[in-house]
């Protein structure tokens, strides 16, 4: 699964730390999602879509192997 978290974060002009604080998670969690090392739960994905004011599908996208 690939994601556009970094792009949406840049649009909102948020650092990883800012976003982590908004979501109540660690900066390491945001960094791991951005680098595709961790797939977030549905709950966290929905919270991200709420912060960025876009649909979840605009942040996360399934790849052919998924």
């Amino acid at each position: 699964m690939k994601n556009r978290l970094k792009v949406h974060r840049a649009i909102k002009d948020l650092t990883q730390e800012d976003l982590a604080k908004l979501l109540g998670v660690s900066r390491q969690t945001i960094n791991s999602i951005e680098k595709n090392r961790y797939v977030p739960s549905t709950l966290l994905a929905l919270k991200l879509s709420k912060v960025f004011e876009v649909h979840v599908n605009e942040i996360f996208e399934l790849e052919s192997g998924d």
């Binding site: 998670v25 660690s26 791991s32």
Partner: peptide, 11 residues
């Protein structure tokens, strides 16, 4: 618990 115990830490 870690300082921030979130779902990533739980995994």
């Amino acid at each position: 618990r870690e300082k921030i115990e979130d779902e990533f830490v739980a995994s």
